[in-house]
Nucleic acid binder design. Structure first.
Length: 291
DNA sequence: AAAGGAACCAACCGCATTTTG
DNA sequence: CCAAAATGCGGTTGGTTCCTT
């Protein structure tokens, strides 16, 4: 009874992948495609478990990976999507072409969390820390610590090199719509610094005024793709729910980002899990349920 | 130059969910 | 419908590199 181990531990390698292992994996997937991870290692002549192969491929070897530093635009998108999705890294990754969930998760934990703390924003709730900090002095100290660090870096003390994130500390979070619908007006300011003028605030073309209509999501007119629109379709399939069939696409396209570019979120094949999540999301965040 | 600490990130682990027979 | 297998996901760990003192 019970679940069998994903691999025979005694006969598998662990730890860092060698170049040869990488090449074997790449060659095999090129020849046979992805899938059937359990049998892949044996077929490819790898002493790894299927899980490990999958992870290596998805996070490192896939040819469409972007690699390299995150741009400020990506930073802001991650923050925005985290505000929407929480720690649903795969959902976030699905909206950032070329980035993996693991990469985003790591980046969040090492950079963005601190960045938000330095701005006085709780990374989990995306709300100002001030209120929460009253009951959590440790958090306040942490915020002060990160603010100091950010100031130091801003002052020009930052070392060059791979710490690309240092220069990002000046970047403002642009957050327009979410709080407008659900957050009470007596909330603390979202940032210690006054908001920049509107011209600056439109730093990114993100329109998060999500709306969900009864009609299925239609891709932007400009989209010339002949493929059916991929989207995160949320069909209210259960009889207990509203009779209406809601469809919501939270991909970059429908968020107003890169209009005209084909939606790549793969929502057309949205899993039950995603659908369930989206239903939960809509329940938890009624403000996104339409105007 | 060396030591210690911090930061970074690839990879692992365990659990949840989905698929298959 | 059920159980087992397969897959996917998120949290965590551990090794390496970089920075500071």
């Amino acid at each position: 009874m019970g679940r069998s181990p994903c691999c025979e531990q005694a006969h598998t390698n662990k730890g860092a992948w060698t170049k040869e292992e990488d090449q074997r994996l790449i060659a095999y997937i090129k020849a046979h495609g992805e899938g059937c991870w359990r049998s892949l290692p044996k077929a490819a002549g790898l002493l790894r478990c299927g899980k490990s192969c999958r992870l290596r491929w998805i996070n490192y070897l896939r040819p469409d990976l972007k690699r390299g530093n995150f741009t400020e635009e990506e930073d802001e998108l991650i923050i925005k999507f985290h505000e929407l999705f929480g720690n649903k890294w795969s959902l976030i990754a699905g909206r950032l072409p070329g980035r993996t969930d693991n990469e985003i998760k790591n980046y969040w934990n090492t950079h963005i969390k601190r960045k938000l703390l330095a701005r006085g924003i709780d990374p989990q709730t995306h709300r100002p820390l001030a209120a929460a900090a009253a009951g959590a002095p440790g958090q306040q100290q942490q915020q002060q610590h990160y603010q100091l660090e950010a100031q130091k870096r801003h002052a020009g003390g930052a070392a060059p090199g791979h710490h690309h994130q240092h220069q990002q500390d000046r970047f403002e979070v642009i957050s327009d719509s979410p709080e407008a619908c659900s957050r009470s007006s007596d909330d603390e300011p979202r940032s210690a610094t006054p908001p920049p003028p509107p011209a600056q605030r439109r730093h990114l073309d993100i329109d998060l005024n999500l709306s969900i209509s009864l009609a299925p999501y239609q891709p932007p007119e400009e989209s010339t793709s002949s493929k059916p629109p991929k989207q995160e379709a949320v069909a209210a399939t259960t009889a207990g729910q509203n009779n209406a069939t809601a469809a919501v696409c939270l991909c970059l396209n429908s968020l107003g980002y890169r209009p005209g570019v084909e939606c790549v979120c793969g929502g057309g094949a949205a899993s039950r899990q995603q659908e369930q999540w989206a239903r939960n999301f809509l329940q938890a965040a009624p403000c996104y349920r339409g105007q």
